[in-house]
């Protein structure tokens, strides 16, 4: 009896220094599988489609519900989360690759440190520590809170950086995600007190100006964050900020 199977072509790599190679797998189909449960099946029985025993495919995962950002990979050419990539919706053979915009650690696992470095660079936080209790912050208007909430859904998954043609080894562009976080923290009434610092940070090397408006980020973001709206809004803010910097301002 022939059993229904799922075919995979996986781009693997043993270590950051070694060359990538492809390996094919064919595993039994189960209803409602996603890419992660398929990878778990390969891990349970690491045999490739030629019947040879191999090392289990290595990948990262955590929440399994598209809120942590750990399981990003390139699936059939598109960067996305593997936890929400349902096998029934994918064309076979399913091609899995690591997001090569980032350093590959092993197989499908990548190192997203550059994103966290970028968040530090743009000061994506709200300083609230003082020598005394600063008390409650001002209230936020509800309509503003609603769109700011959308921006806060960013899980630093790296999909927008992988999709962006201007984030690559030839450019030092920090990518859309940290830019949108600047808009989020500048929108907060307390965060707005450090607005100029953040705007000046993204006016530095590899900052906002490196965006080329391909708008792949907004098409690819698994959380549907309006990244290009954030970028355009920051373009407006930095235009004003650059005039303030040049001519001087008491704001």
């Amino acid at each position: 009896m022939s059993q229904k199977t799922v075919k995979f072509i996986i781009t693997r790599q043993n270590s950051p220094e070694t060359a990538p190679y492809q390996e094919e797998f064919e595993i039994p189909y189960r209803p409602n599988m996603n890419v992660i449960s398929a990878l778990m099946e390969i891990r349970r029985n690491p045999v490739n489609s030629k019947g040879e025993a191999t090392t289990p495919v290595y990948w990262e995962m955590n929440c399994l519900e598209e809120v942590c950002g750990a399981c990003s990979m390139v699936i059939n050419g598109k960067p996305r989360q593997s936890c929400t990539a349902l096998i029934d919706n994918l064309e076979q053979p399913i091609r899995l690759e690591p997001m090569k915009t980032f350093p590959v650690v092993r197989d499908l696992a990548i190192d997203r440190s550059r994103m966290f470095d970028a968040l530090k660079r743009v000061k994506a936080w709200i300083p609230i520590d003082g020598t005394y209790d600063l008390g409650e912050g001002p209230r936020m208007p509800e309509p503003k809170r609603q769109w700011a909430y959308e921006l806060s859904k960013c899980m630093t998954c790296g999909v927008c950086l992988e999709a962006c043609p201007n984030v690559n080894s030839k450019s030092d562009f920090i990518g859309p995600a940290p830019l949108s976080q600047v808009r989020l923290f500048n929108a907060h009434p307390t965060g707005a007190m450090n607005k100029a610092e953040r705007l000046n940070a993204i006016m530095g090397e590899g900052g906002l100006a490196s965006c080329g408006n391909s708008q792949n980020c907004v098409q690819s973001c698994p959380k549907g964050i309006p990244l290009t709206t954030s970028i355009a809004s920051l373009n407006r803010e930095t235009t004003i900020q650059s005039f303030r910097n040049f001519f001087g301002s008491d704001k």
Partner: peptide, 21 residues
């Protein structure tokens, strides 16, 4: 300089704005 710092990917991501890019 801008042209040479881009790594075009319309093959994988063939969205309208990416083509315009």
């Amino acid at each position: 300089y801008i042209v040479f710092t881009a790594k075009n990917n319309v093959g994988r991501l063939s969205y309208f704005r990416n083509w315009m890019f």
